[in-house]
Simulated assay, not measured.
Amino acid sequence: MKLLTFEYNGKRSAGVLSEDGKNVIKINIEGKEYEDIGYMLSSLKDISIEKIRKYRLDSKDSIPLSDVKLCAPIPYPNQDVICLGINYMAHAEESARYKEQAFGGERPFAVYFSKRVNEAVADGEYIDGHFDIVDSLDYEVELAVIIGKDAKNVKKEDIFEYILGYTILNDISARNLQTQHKQWYFGKSLDGFTPMGPWIVTTDEFVNPPELKISSKVNGEIRQDSSTDLFIFDIAHVVNELSQGMTLKAGTIISMGTPAGVGMGFVPPKFLKSGDIIECEIEGIGSIKNIIK
């Protein structure tokens, strides 16, 4: 099932894509509609895939997909996105090379950081390059995990009971700001630096854990081409570890890191410029395409 946020006649709503992919059906749970998927999750705190399927409006109230504007599925996250850094070994190598650091070949602990998202960018929308302060704009295709109910002290064997589904996230990054400030928060949190979508695909559409092809293209040129089974720290490890020390509230977004092939990994680097088209694709979810302005 594909959960989405859409705009129709000036109103934003949470919905479900019909099985044939041609229509959008509003979600109505016990008489209440929701303006977006994130608001629905944070309001209900514990929502099952079965309950969403049960309470969507009857198909006669559906709207043609061609008549709506798709938004990011969670346009306004309640909390910063939790991100993993260096979660593919090949990306760890290219990152160390760009920073002119030695790479020991080991990654004993996960690297976590947060990314502020004032408003996520939808598929097809422009990305502000902030070229007045950015001279090394980069892309990072990532699988984003969406927590469906509050998770605290979750055992590894129970992890997937707490995950609603997955979406695509492009972790746009200003490498010069990362380097200048010696951390990642500012360089990854500028307005418009989080394209996300086109929808959330629920976990019942995948095996657990999902092993999916993941790729990115810039102006049609393949840059990243990998698989999520190459995570250094997998989804179960990450959710289990984080939930020991904090409550992962419903609607939490965890972005699982990017594979090799980012702009800084090339010699010389291939950073984004105005007019570039960046497309991110993950098997079983779809793709998002955005233009740099």
Rank of each mutant, 00 (worst) to 15 (best):
S66W: 11
E35L: 08
E119T: 03
R56K: 14
F113D: 12
N87A: 11
I47A: 02
G129C: 04
I47D: 09
G129D: 06
D80G: 03
V117L: 02
A120F: 04
R53D: 14
Y98Q: 03
V81N: 01
E50V: 11
P108S: 02
R53H: 13
A122D: 06
M40S: 11
I49F: 09
E106I: 02
D80R: 05
Y98P: 10
I37Q: 02
A72V: 08
A72L: 07
V117K: 05
Y76A: 10
A92M: 11
S48D: 00
Y98E: 09
A96D: 04
I74M: 03
A72Y: 04
L70K: 00
D36M: 07
I47E: 00
L70P: 05
D123I: 12
F103A: 01
K51H: 10
K51P: 10
A90P: 13
E94T: 03
A110G: 12
E35R: 06
F109M: 07
P73L: 07
P77S: 06
K51L: 12
A90L: 13
L57K: 15
C71F: 13
P77G: 07
L84S: 09
D80T: 13
D58A: 11
E50A: 08
Q101T: 04
L44K: 03
K60G: 07
A122F: 00
A110V: 13
Y126H: 15
S43M: 08
H91D: 10
A110K: 05
D36W: 05
A92S: 10
D46E: 10
S42A: 14
L70T: 08
F113T: 02
Y112Q: 01
I133V: 15
E35A: 07
Q79S: 14
L70E: 03
A92N: 07
D46Q: 00
H130Q: 08
Y126G: 14
Y112G: 10
C83Y: 09
F131I: 00
K45E: 15
E93C: 06
E100W: 06
M89I: 01
L57F: 12
C83L: 11
F103M: 09
D36K: 02
I49D: 01
N87E: 02
M40D: 05
